[in-house]
Amino acid sequence: MRARGYRLMLLPFVAGSIILLIGPALLALGLAFTDFDGLSTPHWVGVDNFAHLLQEPVFQTVLRNSVEFLLLSLPIRLLGAYLPALWLSHPRRGAGLYRALVYLPSVLPDVAYALTWVWIVNPMYGPLNLALKAMGLAQPGWLADPNAARLVFVMMAALQIGEGFVIALSGLRGIPAERIQAAMVDGAGRWALFRHITLPLSLPWLALIVVRDAIFLLPWTFPMTAIMTGGDPYYNTLFIPLYARITSIDYLRFGQGSAAIVFMIVLAALVLFAFWRFARRGWYADEA
C-alpha cells in the first residue's frame, strides 16, 4: 500500500520525464538519420548528417568550443562547490549568510543572470573592466574578444554552483564524527584527515556533482549564449545546443540539428566515462 502510494507520487515526474525528455530525445535520435526540414516528408539518409557535421568547419569549431567549455567548467565548478562546503561544514560565525551568498547566483532566473553579466563584462562601462583598470591590469573586450568570450561563460558557470554546494555540504555533514575522532586519536593532522577520511568519503557526492554537471552544463549554455552573444564573436561562443537550434529552426535542417544533439549526448557520456575510470579506484579503496 505504502509502495503504491510512493509510485503514485512519482507518476507526474515519470510522465513529465517521458513526455518532455525521453520522448523528444528518442525522436531527435530518429530525426538525426533523416533529411527532415520541418516542412517536407523526411527521408532516411543514414549517417549522412553525422558525416556532414564532422566535415563542416563551423561544427568543428562548435565541437571544440563545447569540449573546451566542459573541460574547463567541470573542475572549476567542482572545486567551487566543494571548497566552500568544506569551509562551511564546520560551525562558524555567519555560516548562514555565507551559505546564502554561495547559493544566491543559482536562484537567479537565466535571463536576469545573463543580462547581469552583459553589464558586468561591458568592455567600457562594466564593473569588471573598471576594477581591472583600477588595478592597472589589462581590460579584455570580453564578449567582443574571441579569446576571452568563452571565459565569460566559464566564469558564469563557476558562480552558479548552489546545487553542487548543497550536495557537497550534505555529503560532508554525513561523515561519521567517530571516524574523524578515531583518526585524530591516532595522531592524524589536518591534511591527513582530509586526504584519508574526508576526501574519500566525499567522493560519491563529488561524483554526483560531476554526473549532474556533465549532463547539465552544455544545455545550460543555450539560454545564456542565445541572450548574450548569439554565438559571437566569430562562433567562439557557439556551443552545441544553440548551434542545433539555429540549424534546425532558422535553417530548417532538423536532421543535422538532431545529429548535433546526439553529438552532445555522446560528449557528455564520454566525460562521464572518463570520470568513472578516474574515480572508481578511490571509491573501491574506500569501500574495501
Binding site: 518532455l20 523528444p24 525522436l27 530518429g30 530525426l31 520541418g38 516528408t41
Partner: peptide, 13 residues
C-alpha cells in the same frame, strides 16, 4: 516517420 518528425518539431517549437 513524418508523424514522428512532426511530433518532435511540435514539441521543439
Amino acid at each position: 516517420l513524418r508523424g514522428l518528425a512532426v511530433s518532435a518539431l511540435a514539441l521543439m517549437l
